[in-house]
Simulated assay, not measured.
Amino acid sequence: MRKQRDINHTMRSILIDWLIEVTEEYKLTLQTFFVTVGYVDRFLSEMAVQRSKLQLVGVTCMLLACKYEEIYPPTIDDFVYITDKTYSRPQVMKMEHVILKVLRFDMGSCTPLTFLYYFLNAIPHHDDTKWLAQYLCELSAYDGRRSLGQRPSTTAAAAIVIALHTFELHPLPPALVSVIRQGPEELQAAVNTLHEIFSVYPNLQHEAIKEKYSTARFNRVAEVPPTRHAPILFT
């Protein structure tokens, strides 16, 4: 975000919240959402964007992510419609060309979700742990000020640790240690950061993720309160 003069982290968070709504509206995969966020952040790190074009960047990044991840991706016209026709089809196509050029056509993306399920498969867990960890990964996507630059594998590991700790389970079982392979200082720092995001979230105005994870489909994990302190993993 250092290149940005007309937008800030709050505007980015509003965009991310809207992208979650679009993901739900078009029934896209969660991986598509995370790939979209990755494209947005990579683009914003390279190119200054006017605030009037931020939504255009977001929707075009989602279009590209859908082409990469979805079997039946929405069309350009679908994305024009979802912006209430704020942008035209030619504008989206032009922005698509710009983003591809800035990202050097390097569209492969590793996301927290890639690691989350791999790590979870290594340990016994119940659905509450899975959904809360997934919720925490999505929360981390909102908070660019704290989480930008963090490795996806570290975010996923921290989310699982906090989810286990929240449900009063051992936060770092040996089977998890054997697969995450994170340095202790890096993992503890990520846990502290994500716990802070989890703790301050109820005071933020992000309705899409709250509505999504307050449903029975996700065991209403958005209503689970954070613990008072982050787990201390290493002494």
Rank of each mutant, 00 (worst) to 15 (best):
V161H: 04
P225H: 01
T227G: 05
E69M: 10
T215I: 09
L30A: 14
K94Y: 13
V57Y: 06
G108L: 09
H206P: 01
G38F: 06
L194D: 10
A230L: 01
Y81F: 09
D128V: 01
Y201E: 13
T129A: 12
P152K: 02
Q182R: 14
R12A: 05
W18T: 09
H125L: 13
C61H: 08
P174S: 11
I123T: 06
A65W: 00
V98K: 14
I14Y: 15
I197W: 03
E69A: 02
Y81W: 09
C61E: 05
A190H: 02
K53C: 08
S140C: 11
E46G: 00
V49Y: 09
T129E: 13
A189P: 00
V221L: 04
E46N: 07
F198T: 05
G183R: 09
K94T: 08
Q205E: 15
R220Y: 10
H170Q: 13
L176C: 03
A175W: 00
L28A: 10
K53F: 02
Q188W: 05
L187P: 08
E25F: 12
A189G: 02
Q91N: 07
R181E: 14
L19I: 01
G144R: 07
E138Q: 12
I160D: 05
Y68D: 13
R5M: 01
L28T: 03
V179T: 11
I20V: 15
N203P: 00
K210D: 14
D127N: 09
L169G: 04
Y142D: 01
I7N: 12
Q55S: 01
N192W: 00
D106M: 05
K130H: 07
P231S: 03
F33K: 04
L172E: 10
I209N: 06
R5Y: 04
E24C: 11
T114A: 02
L172Q: 11
E96F: 01
V35C: 05
E25Y: 11
R181Q: 15
P90N: 11
E24G: 03
G38E: 08
R145P: 00
V221C: 00
A156R: 06
R5D: 05
Y72W: 02
F34G: 05
L116Q: 11
I209P: 00
A190I: 00
F218V: 07
T83S: 09
L103G: 05
A133L: 04
L100D: 00
V191Y: 06
I76F: 10
Q55F: 04
Y118K: 15
N192M: 10
V35D: 07
K130Y: 09
S45G: 12
Y142S: 09
W18Y: 15
A122R: 03
Y117H: 14
K67A: 07
E25I: 06
P174T: 02
S147W: 00
T114D: 15
